[in-house]
Amino acid sequence: MEDYYSTEREFKKHHVTEVNKSVLEVLDTVMDPEIPVLSILDLGIVREVRVQDGKVDIAITPTYTGCPAMHLIEMEIRAAMAQSGLEANVKTVLSPAWTTDWMREGALEKLSQYGIAPPGRIASMQHADTATPKRIECPQCTSSNTEVISEFGSTACKALYRCLDCREPFDYFKCH
């Protein structure tokens, strides 16, 4: 898989600091409870991994300030590490603030297949206050003839859209 952080170097390029490959593999099994096709590495919320003497320090950054999934994710990281015989200490860092641009390339494809229109890349957009691309593609039929129903959807990270061709409503993962 092209996008997978197969090496420590690759992880460092996107994130920071010391890393251990087997720990990364375990972290890639911890899924977002709201979007179970994405791991926390797909989301890009893991900021730092340090392994020392059977203990691992992991820093994660919240997606949205009020996202109730963050607490669960912390617990699941600890549980996954415990199964690999590692004691995990998880801390939350706020700055730099998470952006959907940190999601892995492959994550966008996974979202789309799951039926959620993926966010565009903010870095490629002109102004990013609420960076909504002009055209959002329907994940069911790929039509760009879609319209927003509400900027606030079933979870903090999603907006609600409808497709004007196949008439299906769908979630759009907001640029953030």
Binding site: P62, Y64, T65, G66, C67, P68, F152, G153, A156
Partner: peptide
């Protein structure tokens, strides 16, 4: 949703 953002903040 907005309420949740505020409570989180």
């Amino acid at each position: 949703n907005i309420a949740l953002d505020y409570i989180g903040r």
